[in-house]
Design a protein around this nucleic acid. Structure first.
Lengths: 210, 210
DNA sequence: ATCAAATACTATACACTGTTCAATTAGTTT
DNA sequence: AAACTAATTGAACAGTGTATAGTATTTGAT
């Protein structure tokens, strides 16, 4: 079959990304493959290569779209609430549980840890991360402190999600990931507020003299 | 060729696991495949199936062996030092950097997040985790507190490693993963020590009333 | 010692994957 | 209308994990 032109390039891009997300969220990350996606949109797999070049490129576009969706949801929800950091922590953990497959897809370590993500994708990650920073800006004093605190707390929440997903966080009693995250956040906040506000103390801690 | 019997079953198991670790650490997680391993040990890939059944089973055995090695190293190093928690944090991050490929292999999310690990493997993870708990037992007061604090701090350090490996933790300035982890630990400790030692406060925090 | 049975090991084959590319066909331009 | 450009396909290829039939060797029983 030759050119069909029932879809523009842009529409086709959209079709492919949307179909990918559908397949992943319904079946799992393993459903992300050229044949399956092509079948879903009614084209041959050759079309995917014509538009995205290879599967790895498409993978980043799909991950980028998922991050965009999350950003919108989180940003919108954050504005309707007082305790922003607590909301973000809750919402992030909810994402990892309710959109289990998509979450696993986005945060799967690359099979070859050498390769690095394209800049425009890293930017999307930073955007999502900036939400955490914004929620912190009311708490901590200077910008550097905010930045570091936000990264630290994000890493710790993310770590809870990763371990929970890998089934390596089974609590002895009733502690769910969310409870653990709240506890973590609480302790961290307490520690943060008891720190002096100047950088002197901060640098001392960062240097390992704790 | 029929039976060779130049190796016992046990020796063959050892050969296969050792060869797998060698391939992964030298080439990368993607080198973990039936053909490559078989070639490395001078047998056909059928032999791997004869002994381990399928690749997924072998994968868990390899991951288990890696965890065993780490446990030995960390446990030995921990006994020769005063600040045990700080040592563990440092050593854990060192592992994720110096044994990059093995670390990525062990903590790669399963492509199908439904499947769960065999009990004997989960036990090995718990063993490693128990080191963190032991290092905490001198700091916190009661057992429940120790358990929860240990899981929280482990998750946060693990999160830093994951994000660092995925290249999603690029600091603005000079903060390396290790510096960030130290900072995180310091703040957390401060928060922990300023908490009352009874469970009342703890439960209040865990319930979200922070 | 001989034959039978059980085991170890290999090799072929199959279904699947991502990728390449020549061929075909439809739309666009001249 | 003819020439050209671009989109779409699907056969072909190299790779994967896995099943299994077949062969060679050791083991066990008589």
């Amino acid at each position: 079959m030759g050119r069909r032109s029932d879809h523009t390039r842009r529409e086709l891009k959209e079709l492919i990304v949307t179909a990918s997300i559908k397949l992943i969220s319904e079946i799992g990350p393993s459903a992300f493959g050229t044949r399956a996606i092509a079948k879903e949109i009614g084209y041959s797999f050759g079309t995917i290569y014509h538009i995205f070049g290879d599967l790895e490129t498409l993978r980043y576009h799909v991950k980028g779209r998922i991050l965009d969706n999350w950003y919108e949801d989180l940003a919108a929800g954050m504005n309707q609430v007082e305790a922003k950091t607590e909301y973000l922590v809750d919402a992030y953990i909810d994402l990892s549980e309710q959109q289990r497959f998509l979450w696993a897809f986005v945060f799967a370590l690359p099979s070859d840890p050498k390769e690095n993500a394209p800049p425009w994708y890293i930017e999307k990650v930073e955007n999502l991360f900036s939400l955490v920073m914004r929620s912190f800006s009311t708490i901590t004093q200077n910008k550097k402190e905010t930045e570091i605190a936000a990264r630290a707390i994000w890493a710790s929440i993310h770590g809870i999600c990763v371990l929970a997903m890998a089934g390596k966080l089974d609590m002895v009693s009733s502690e769910s990931p969310k409870e653990l995250a709240h506890l973590q956040l609480g302790i961290y906040m307490k520690g943060l507020s008891s720190l002096d506000n100047d950088l002197y103390m901060f640098n001392a801690v960062a240097a390992g003299n704790i």
